[in-house]
């Protein structure tokens, strides 16, 4: 379980970091295999978003080892990590304001701007997964409903065709119906053998979509296991942590 193999999409070892020299996460170690979906669960303030931001290069103070697709990125700036290694659905979606759905998607794929055919192929892939937003492609992205905006945010991440997909609480603030759509879409991504790291508060979604889970509390990993092994007892334990 601890071995570092060539096939891992993400290897994190001894990761500590935070804001202004004040560490939020301490000595984190975990991995995401290639084509594997892994969930990071934990209560508010556990440091889940901080871990994600560290992987994407958005956390300025970070130490340890972060390897995406075999490349150490612990000192890399986000725009370098964005070149095919990782792409992110940020917490709260954060679509580009004042720009259309299509422009938001194309900006997600801007690293492939020289490869027109690939970009169109990826765009078709997004619209196949989310037919709803194809109808709104010329609309201003932030004028869409919460669920539709989340689709655009996931589409924007897909457009980069990254080795690792990072999703930060995609279910946050969505209506129950939109959440059902969301977890269906995540399962589809999972079936396409994408490597996914999902941060969630909703344990049910995480267990439904992911192969393995890590539980984060107080900035440390306190538990891990296979999603399929999570019986009622495991769930109760997690629920206790999420309290």
């Amino acid at each position: 379980m601890s071995a570092t193999t060539q096939t891992d999409a993400l290897v994190v070892e001894g990761l500590s970091g935070g804001y202004d020299r004040f560490d939020v996460v301490h000595d984190i170690a975990f991995r995401v295999g290639c084509g594997e979906a892994v969930a990071l669960l934990g209560p508010n303030g556990a440091g889940k978003t901080t871990v994600l931001r560290a992987i994407m290069g958005l956390l300025r103070h970070r130490r340890g080892r972060i390897e995406i697709d075999g490349t150490d990125v612990v000192a890399a700036p986000p725009h370098r990590i964005a070149r095919g290694l990782a792409a992110m659905v940020p917490e709260g979606r954060r679509l580009f304001v004042g720009q259309s759905v299509e422009d938001n998607l194309r900006l997600g794929g801007i690293r492939l701007r020289g490869d027109r055919a690939r970009t169109e192929e990826l765009l078709a892939g997004v619209f196949e997964l989310f037919p709803v937003i194809e109808r709104y492609r010329d609309r201003e992205a932030t004028a869409l409903s919460g669920g539709e905006q989340q689709m655009v945010a996931i589409g924007r991440m897909m457009m980069a065709d990254p080795a690792l997909m990072l999703l930060d609480e995609p279910s946050l603030g969505l209506a129950p119906l939109a959440i059902a759509d969301l977890s269906a879409a995540l399962r589809r991504l999972r079936e396409q053998d994408r490597s996914i790291l999902l941060v969630e508060q909703r344990v049910d979604i995480a267990l439904e979509v992911c192969d393995r889970i890590y539980v984060l509390s107080g900035g440390r990993i306190v538990d891990e296991g296979r999603a399929s092994d999570m019986g009622a007892e495991g769930r109760a334990l997690i629920d206790a942590y999420l309290g």
Binding site: P78, R83, R94, F96
Partner: peptide, 11 residues
């Protein structure tokens, strides 16, 4: 509008 997210798409 959002420099941080723009950097995550490669800007």
């Amino acid at each position: 509008t959002d420099p941080e997210i723009a950097s995550t798409v490669g800007a």
